[in-house]
Design a protein around this nucleic acid. Structure first.
Lengths: 110, 110
DNA sequence: CATGCTCCTATAGACGGACTAGAGAAGAGT
DNA sequence: ACTCTTCTCTAGTCCGTCTATAGGAGCATG
């Protein structure tokens, strides 16, 4: 994942992938596009970051995949969340909230 | 850095260290304590994470250090921000703001 | 004094996730 | 045929954090 020039948060990619799949199933590149869209261009996920993450998350049981055809008639692997994946999204969202709050407070401390 | 059980954000430790030194100079363990304090216990920085980070940041020119004596009469290395360090804190704070906003929006997207 | 505690700094080694930099297959357009 | 685009995938590397451990040195206690 790259945001502008520098590299970014660890563990956040998983959350964004989970979120991007929470509404509908998508194939790999579709996930990348959706992440860019919902973060308004702040995060651009490259294949070398995306696919290893998808593989890992499928291993964890958060995703399942099926082969299908893309909008452009290409062979594409569609991912969707499992129940565990939905739970994981909730967990990570909550966790993110705590962390963001803690850092916000830290940054405004005297 | 450990928050509760799991490991955490990459790059965030630097920002918290810079912030903890923005008001006054501190020695290593003092920095760890201050981070725990200003994040209200959310982040607990362990020596194995802290000292490599301090070393790296001094290499980058964001910190300088001088040996002194701690409140408890122990030999302690006191760190303070350089001008570049102050600038870096601003940069990272701004960056954090953008990222946090982007993720917040992503998470509330339909 | 000697034993052990706490404070403080430090390092080795491993781990893990993201990065760069490709490759390859296959449909679409010319 | 040729190239472009779409889509998936991998190798190899990098870098920051983690666990675990070490060790000096002040201080207290018996």
């Amino acid at each position: 994942m790259a945001s502008e020039q520098t590299s970014l948060l660890q563990g956040t990619l998983d959350m964004l992938i989970l979120k991007s799949l929470s509404a509908a199933e998508l194939h790999g590149l579709g996930i990348a596009r959706r992440i860019e869209q919902i973060t308004q261009g702040t995060f651009q996920v490259k294949p070398g970051s995306l696919f290893p993450a998808l593989y890992r998350m499928e291993e964890e049981g958060w995703l399942t995949s099926t082969w299908g055809e893309s909008e452009n008639n290409r062979r594409a692997k569609y991912y969707r969340l499992t129940k565990a994946g939905h739970r994981q999204l909730e967990t990570e969202t909550e966790r993110w909230g705590r962390i963001a709050l803690a850092i916000a407070r830290a940054l405004e401390a005297s």
